[in-house]
């Protein structure tokens, strides 16, 4: 399941809702991405996420389907926010639930690594010096690429 929304979310409530009535999932893995307080050495005042409505949902659905194809998963949830966020606020939530922890861990990492390089979101950082668009990182491309050709684990 995927959701793209402006408002924040309650991690505990999301997990409880996702797993309600499910007694097959023995392992639940959660990744929560948050806004950091520093951007290139300067104090971050806020971060604004722009996205491409429609394509964002399609890309996240495709990634979700790919994860379900690669691993035996009971439940998956991706929530990604957009709009203006303050330091400490949640940006993205990935939850994967499986019978065993290996599939839950691997699928969770796959989803966060790959959504960073495929889902059409763009961050603009506000500091005292003004607002600037965040550049894509080569390390993120490498992390996503490591999942191609059925690789078992991501990261560099």
């Amino acid at each position: 399941m995927i959701r793209v929304q402006r408002e924040t979310f309650d991690v505990g409530a999301e997990i409880a809702s996702l797993c309600a009535g499910d007694t097959a999932a023995g392992g639940v893995c959660v990744f929560l991405g948050r806004v950091r307080e520093f951007a290139h050495g300067a104090a971050l005042q806020a971060m604004t996420l722009e996205h491409y409505p429609g394509m964002t949902e399609r890309q996240l659905e495709a990634l979700d389907a790919e994860a379900q194809r690669r691993w035996l998963l009971e439940k998956t949830l991706i929530i990604h926010r957009y709009g203006r966020l303050l330091p400490g606020e949640a940006i993205v939530l990935v939850v994967t639930a499986a019978a065993h922890r290996e599939a839950a861990f691997d699928a969770c990492r796959f989803l966060i690594d790959c959504l960073k390089t495929t889902a059409p979101f763009w961050k603009a950082e506000e500091t005292a010096a003004g607002s600037r668009w965040v550049d894509a990182r080569a390390a993120d491309d490498a992390a996503a690429l490591s999942w191609q050709d059925g690789a078992a684990a991501g990261g560099s």
Partner: peptide
């Protein structure tokens, strides 16, 4: 048709 810079979503 959409034109945009490389994407930067997700988290650190």
């Amino acid at each position: 048709v959409a034109f945009f810079p490389p994407v930067t979503g997700g988290a650190p």
